[in-house]
Design a protein around this nucleic acid. Structure first.
Length: 906
DNA sequence: GCAAGGTC
């Protein structure tokens, strides 16, 4: 019989790469599949020492989805409880319509082949997809001989080895995935339907659009946020005591003060601390005693290791921490960079580079970049006196045997990427890669140990001898700390000796990076899904991010966790997912059968369901506070029972109407009196007047000035929205916010505020409305604004000009000084010193267009200068906007502009 | 309308 082999990979890129390797230098032919993305490659290849035709195609992840049978698919068609039992509801697995083209390709190719080789990824999901592909192919050609290829990397060697050692499919591993799918679906659907319908039916919130969902990953994630919140709430500060010592040393003819740390760090017992301090103090008094003795000067070498190769979870954590991008956005941007061929596959657990990968070639690729190209060149062409040279990256401990660590695959486009986020993420990946391929940083640490009485104190100094990878990895710094020249036996006068009292502080709320680490630790989600789970609990309104981008539970999230706990239902505990994964693993090792495991897990979910249902009163109590609508007869008094959080007492503020609505006749038109309304705090006796129009929503962020929760006001008729702090709206923070004639600027919204560090405060000190220069593209006035970054942008709605200041610019003030060259207002800029090389000024007063001082700072950091010239594309953008008679093309920009201009003023 | 896991 003529042998013809059908091969299937998990994604199109893998099919193409493997085809390239297996066909050797002879190349392959490409044909279209029914899906435009999943092409078919054809070539000849040796199999069992015989040259045979190979047909290679791909799927795009899972081919099938799992759902309930029709009978149970509609909400309300059965009790949610029935979804938790295999005897009362059945599941069906089918190919959804969007996957039909791929299925059709497999059908067509399977008919014409005799052997099927499954080249799916080497993880459990890959095994499950292999089964899906097999069932689809066998349905059209039951006589196919099915084989599984196993490989850890897409290299010629691995491919050949896989082909010479074809195996069979791993049924227990597949059974494990099937069990996971079934459990997640049944439990997710049952609890979600129960929670959502209970809210709707019990409280008659018939138009409830919100889903109150349960998911085995989202709930433990929520629990992590709530846990930290409760830890902070219940934190009891403890007094501690520290002895601070400052000594005076002579250095180059000048006296310098040096602070020392106490070797005991701190003591918690007031009496012991006082006694120790007294002894210390006594021994320092006296004619010859007011000196400390230097008892040791210890020198040691210190190394800071270069970073490990980059895996997905680490990327999400670091990019959130260093660039302030959420993990969700990071993954979207990374996906874009990947599909455009700029970086390797962004979903990988691997933090060790395979020795077969040609890293020097990848480094060479970066040599053309104007920002870090010179570093790449130094790596490859080391000179004798240059410590920077190529060294193979350190090896991490994780390897998914499927993808390499994330690295750049080709140089950045010379004119930058289409979005700033792509620019920033690519830069991070490229710099991190070069840092991995360079050398550790080395420094020399000096510790001076001084003695007063019987107590020892230390001061540390550092001389960085080799910056190593820090030269390219600008996200971290290692800086010198000078010490005066001191030798053992020296005596130094005591400048200060004090017993200081401090209080222990609770840990902060979780940052995104903290949350990702905890999810990773507890095995919640995978590298590819962690970001989605975080996004989900935000969307569901269980948690929000405050102005510091830290996660705080919302009332609903807190209530869900608390009420589950009160019913003794352990679904909202961080370890639940890991525990479930553990039981599932037993299926893959054949320690337990799939059916047996499922029956037991489902029965346990069933018990929890019943527990929740029987104790639903406590759940109702909580939901009532959140969802109950005010009594219809009282509706002119209470409009929304719980809108936002009071900054004084943390109670929820209610929105009350202050006047009865009355209709009046003005001429022929019948008009309604505007509603006067206020947020009121029952315990603080506070009334905060609110704008009369628009719906109020809690925004999640907290005002850093007064601690009130920010409110988002949405006016759907005018299609505007803006944010206010309820307190600042009534009581603007200071005279900072006055207009040119010294009058307060009407109603005070977040965008009028210039509070440093608050991302909502987008006004600039000196006034957002102050013109700072003429637009280089269209000659309209330009203002300085602030969103995440400061920027100079054109005020014309028809022009897209904007110059974003680099991230190290942390403050911009428009001054009255003008540039003698171009008449632009000079800007006073303050820089974040930790992001700049040593010796850079911390503050500059400059014209950003003409002053060399600013341009020098930009050159030092590899940032581009502000461009006065527009590209052809920019100009065409302006022209087409003018032709179309509209403003900026982005809807979001248009909306926010209206907000700024007072279109939403009420 | 519900989950989590792949993937474009």
């Amino acid at each position: 019989m003529v042998v013809r082999v059908l091969n299937v990979a998990e994604k199109p890129s893998a099919a193409k790469e493997i085809s390239g390797l297996l066909s050797g230098g002879r190349g392959y032919q490409t044909r279209a599949g029914f899906s435009p993305y999943n092409k078919v490659f054809e070539f000849e290849c040796d199999l069992d020492r015989q040259r045979v035709p190979f047909v290679f195609t791909s799927v795009s992840g899972h081919l099938k989805v799992l759902d309930f049978e029709d009978r149970c698919r509609k909400w309300g068609s059965c009790s949610p409880r029935a979804l938790l039992s295999r005897s009362t509801s059945n599941l069906v697995s089918y190919v959804p319509s969007e996957m039909k083209p791929i299925e059709n390709t497999l059908h067509r190719e399977a008919r014409a082949c005799t052997v099927l080789i499954l080249w799916l990824d080497g993880d459990s999901e890959g095994e499950n997809i292999a089964y899906e592909v097999m069932s689809v192919c066998l349905s059209k050609n039951p006589r196919l001989l099915v084989k599984r290829a196993r490989f850890s990397a897409i290299t010629t060697q691995d491919m050949r080895q896989a082909l010479d050692n074809l195996g069979s499919l791993n049924a227990p591993l597949n059974a494990m995935v099937e069990a996971r799918q079934e459990l997640d679906l049944r439990a997710g659907a049952a609890f979600t339907r129960f929670l959502t319908t209970r809210v709707r039916d019990e409280f008659l919130v018939s138009e409830l659009k919100q889903v109150v969902s349960y998911g085995p990953c989202q709930f433990p994630t929520l629990a992590l946020v709530v846990d930290r919140f409760l830890t902070i709430q219940s934190f009891v500060p403890q007094d501690f005591f520290v002895i601070d010592l400052t000594l005076r040393f002579a250095n180059a003819g000048r006296n310098v003060s040096l602070k020392f740390d106490w070797n005991r760090s701190r003591l918690f017992d007031r009496f012991i601390a006082s006694a120790v301090f007294e002894m210390c103090y006594e021994s320092s008094i006296g004619p010859d005693q007011e000196q400390a003795l230097v008892v040791a000067v210890q020198k040691s070498q210190r190394t800071r290791w270069k970073p490990l190769p980059l895996a997905t979870v680490e990327m999400q954590k670091q990019v959130s921490r260093k660039l302030g991008m959420s993990s969700e956005v990071t993954m979207q941007v990374a996906e874009k960079l990947y599909t455009q061929g700029f970086i390797s596959y962004p979903r990988t657990e691997t933090d060790v580079f395979n020795r077969n990968l040609n890293l020097t070639e990848l480094v060479q690729n970066q040599a053309s970049d104007r920002r870090w190209g010179s570093f790449a060149t130094r790596l490859l062409n080391p000179s004798q006196d240059d410590p920077i040279q190529f060294q193979w990256p350190r090896a991490g401990k994780n390897n998914d045997e499927a993808h390499p660590p994330i690295h750049p695959t080709r140089p950045a486009p010379p004119n930058g990427f289409e979005s700033r986020d792509m620019d920033r993420l690519y830069e991070y990946i490229a710099r991190r890669f070069l840092a991995c391929c360079s050398v550790d940083a080395k420094g020399s640490e000096t510790v001076i140990v001084a003695q007063v009485g019987a107590e020892l104190f230390n001061a540390k100094g550092m001389i960085v001898e080799r910056q190593g990878f820090y030269e390219v990895f600008i996200y971290d710094r290692w800086v010198d700390k000078d010490l005066p020249p001191v030798a053992t036996g020296d005596r130094a006068p005591i400048e200060a000796l004090e017993l200081r009292t401090g209080k222990t502080e609770p840990p902060p709320l979780l940052s995104e990076s903290d949350l990702i680490s905890l999810m990773d630790k507890h095995g919640i989600g995978t590298d590819a899904t962690i970001a989605q789970h975080i996004q989900k609990i935000l969307e569901r309104g269980y948690v929000s991010k405050n102005h510091l981008k830290r996660f705080q539970p919302e009332l609903l999230g807190l209530a869900l966790v608390e009420s589950y706990e009160s019913c003794q239902v352990s679904l909202a505990r961080p370890y639940m997912r890991a525990q479930q994964e553990q039981s599932l693993k037993q299926i893959s090792t054949n320690s337990i059968g799939k059916n047996e495991m499922l029956e037991s897990a489902l029965s346990s979910f069933g018990s929890m369901y019943e527990l929740l249902e029987n104790n639903a009163r406590s759940l109702d109590e909580v939901f009532r506070r959140i969802f109950v609508q005010p009594n219809a007869t009282d509706s002119w008094r209470i409009l929304q029972p719980e809108v936002t959080r009071c900054g004084a007492c943390t109670n929820r503020l209610a929105l009350k109407q202050l006047n009865k609505p009355t209709a009046r006749r003005r001429g022929n038109a019948r008009t309604t009196e505007p509603v006067r309304r206020a947020l009121t705090c029952s315990s603080c006796q506070l009334n905060l007047v609110m704008p009369p129009f628009g719906t109020l929503h809690a925004f999640g962020a907290t005002c850093p000035i007064c601690g009130f929760e920010v409110v988002r006001i949405e006016n759907s008729e005018r299609n505007t929205e803006y944010k206010i702090c309820p307190k600042c709206y009534n009581d603007p923070p200071s005279a900072r916010e006055v207009n040119a004639s010294g009058q307060p600027r009407g109603a005070f919204r977040c965008f009028n505020c210039s509070q440093a560090g608050c991302p909502l405060a987008t006004a600039v000190v000196g006034g957002s409305d102050t013109v700072c220069c003429v637009c280089p593209w269209c000659s309209s006035p330009c203002n300085v604004r602030k969103t995440n970054l400061f920027r100079v942008s054109c005020s014309s709605s028809r022009c897209n000009f904007a110059y974003f200041f680099p991230r190290f610019v942390e403050g911009v003030v428009v001054t009255d000084t003008t540039c003698t060259n171009c008449a632009a207002k000079k800007l006073e800029m303050t820089f974040l010193r930790t992001m700049l090389p040593p010796g850079t000024p911390q503050c500059l007063l400059v014209c950003i267009w003409c002053d060399q001082a600013y341009h020098t700072v930009l050159e030092l950091t590899g940032e581009p200068r502000p461009r006065r010239t527009a590209t052809a594309r920019d100009i065409e953008g302006v022209h087409s906007a003018v032709r179309a008679g509209r403003g900026r093309t982005s809807r979001g920009v248009q909306r926010s502009r209206r907000g700024r201009r007072g279109g939403s003023r009420t």
